[in-house]
């Protein structure tokens, strides 16, 4: 999904970097991702590019749905990394 692409790559890069710096286990990357993706979503869309929301609004997606998608992707990522 286009909306999540930006959030995913930036958040993953930051989560991995943070995990490497503090030498955390891969399970922690999922926790970092979940937290960081929330801030990246807020920063990229609500602060920097708030008008880009209209692209998605015109497709029938409201802010609640977009926030849920960020959280669900973070949760799936967290579950996958916890299981590995």
């Amino acid at each position: 999904m286009l909306f999540q692409r930006k959030i995913f790559f930036i958040s993953y890069f930051l989560a991995l970097s943070l995990a490497l710096i503090i030498k955390a286990s891969h399970q922690i990357i999922g926790v970092f991702y979940l937290m960081i993706s929330t801030f990246v979503h807020l920063f990229v869309y609500d602060i920097l590019n708030s008008n880009q929301y209209y692209y998605y609004f015109n497709l029938g997606l409201n802010k609640t749905k977009l926030w849920i998608s960020t959280f669900v992707i973070g949760l799936i990522n967290f579950i996958i990394l916890s299981v590995i």
Binding site: F3, K6, Q52, Y54, G60
Partner: peptide
Amino acid sequence: NLSDGRNLINYLPQDSFLPNNI
């Protein structure tokens, strides 16, 4: 709400809404 208006109403805002980097 916005979801009720899907495929019924669309809105062109004053400022550009296209996502960048694509």
